Amino acid sequence: MVKIGNLELGDFPLLLAPMEDVSDPPFRAVCKANGADLMYTEFISSEGLIRDAAKSVQKLDIFDYERPVGIQIFGNEIESMREAAAIVEAARPDILDINYGCPVNKVACKGAGAGILLDIDKMVSMTAEIVKAVNIPVTVKTRLGWDENTIRINEVVERLQDIGIQAISIHARTRKQMYKGTADWSYLAKIKENPRINIPVFGNGDIDSAEKALEYRNKYGIDGIMIGRATIGYPWIFNEIKHYFATGELLPPPDLEERIKVTKKHLDFSVEWKGEKLGILEMRRHYTNYFRGMPNFKAYRTQMVTTESYAEVCTILDQVGEVYADFQF
């Protein structure tokens, strides 16, 4: 049984990665319904929380149906992160997660996210202050290092464990790699072989199929897998992995009826959470992904991303179901 604090997550949990502009409550709802064991919010700026910025505060929204859920924060000032941690705890998540992995320039080049991998001492000091500031489990998501010459991940995990984090998720790339090249999970295997490490270690990077999930579980000995980009438009991946682990058989891909049903459910949650206008607007980035691989779909996508009517989106989805009734994924 994998545990984070007193939180029991099963024998080999599958985690939904925190993804900016993706991992909002509506998306988390469909992932939860399709087998995700633990989810994290989009990352939230510590400075935004302290200033009570509306966008940051809204990201604190979590719902009982999605538990267990962690709220993730990022920043480069220790005092601001400590204050933000207290605000997060008041929102009653099951976990507080610290982002030490975001590679984008506007975050990393300001010393936050993966930028802090250039200052491990500060990373440890900041984490220690956050752990002391809250009474809920603190976890960390990070990368191997800034570049191939600064990979100190084994030391990082030891030191963060020593000051009280309860689990760590590691994207097995450096910041320099961004999302290119191949994730090198051999570093994770070495961490799991380290007798000093007793917290759960979750692997992240390149998991896009049930077969690869099983291969990496067996090869690298990690405690669970965090999945990011492969879930976009495909929340079914969690249950597909679980089924493959249990039976050795691959589930058939979801058919068109199922895809339309989940798209509508996602849309319903989005409208319920943010209202019709904004809920419809924020769903637009998802349609292409749900129906990836369908020929001549562009015209329907164009209709869905230009209408501002919930009823019209549903009508277009119904039309897709009729026109492509015989299509096989």
Score class of each variant (00 low, 15 high):
residue 126 M to T: 14
residue 106 K to M: 12
residue 151 I to E: 13
residue 101 G to R: 08
residue 80 S to V: 00
residue 166 Q to F: 02
residue 127 T to C: 03
residue 105 N to R: 15
residue 99 N to S: 02
residue 139 T to D: 08
residue 116 I to D: 00
residue 50 I to W: 08
residue 150 T to A: 03
residue 93 P to V: 09
residue 167 A to R: 05
residue 145 G to Q: 03
residue 120 I to R: 14
residue 120 I to A: 10
residue 85 A to E: 07
residue 153 I to P: 02
residue 130 I to Y: 11
residue 107 V to G: 00
residue 100 Y to W: 14
residue 52 D to L: 09
residue 65 Y to T: 03
residue 99 N to D: 09
residue 136 I to P: 07
residue 78 I to F: 09
residue 63 F to R: 15
residue 167 A to F: 04
residue 105 N to V: 13
residue 56 S to L: 02
residue 123 M to D: 03
residue 58 Q to P: 00
residue 155 E to W: 05
residue 126 M to W: 00
residue 87 I to V: 05
residue 119 D to S: 13
residue 153 I to A: 12
residue 158 E to G: 04
residue 55 K to T: 03
residue 168 I to R: 03
residue 156 V to N: 04
residue 122 K to H: 04
residue 127 T to W: 06
residue 107 V to T: 04
residue 166 Q to M: 11
residue 117 L to T: 07
residue 148 E to F: 02
residue 111 G to E: 06
residue 76 N to D: 04
residue 157 V to W: 00
residue 61 D to A: 14
residue 107 V to M: 04
residue 159 R to M: 11
residue 80 S to N: 15
residue 152 R to T: 12
residue 79 E to L: 11
residue 133 A to P: 00
residue 122 K to S: 12
residue 162 D to C: 05
residue 155 E to K: 14
residue 107 V to A: 01
residue 119 D to T: 06
residue 89 E to H: 09
residue 85 A to H: 04
residue 124 V to Y: 01
residue 168 I to F: 05
residue 160 L to D: 05
residue 143 R to C: 09
residue 108 A to G: 10
residue 63 F to W: 14
residue 130 I to D: 01
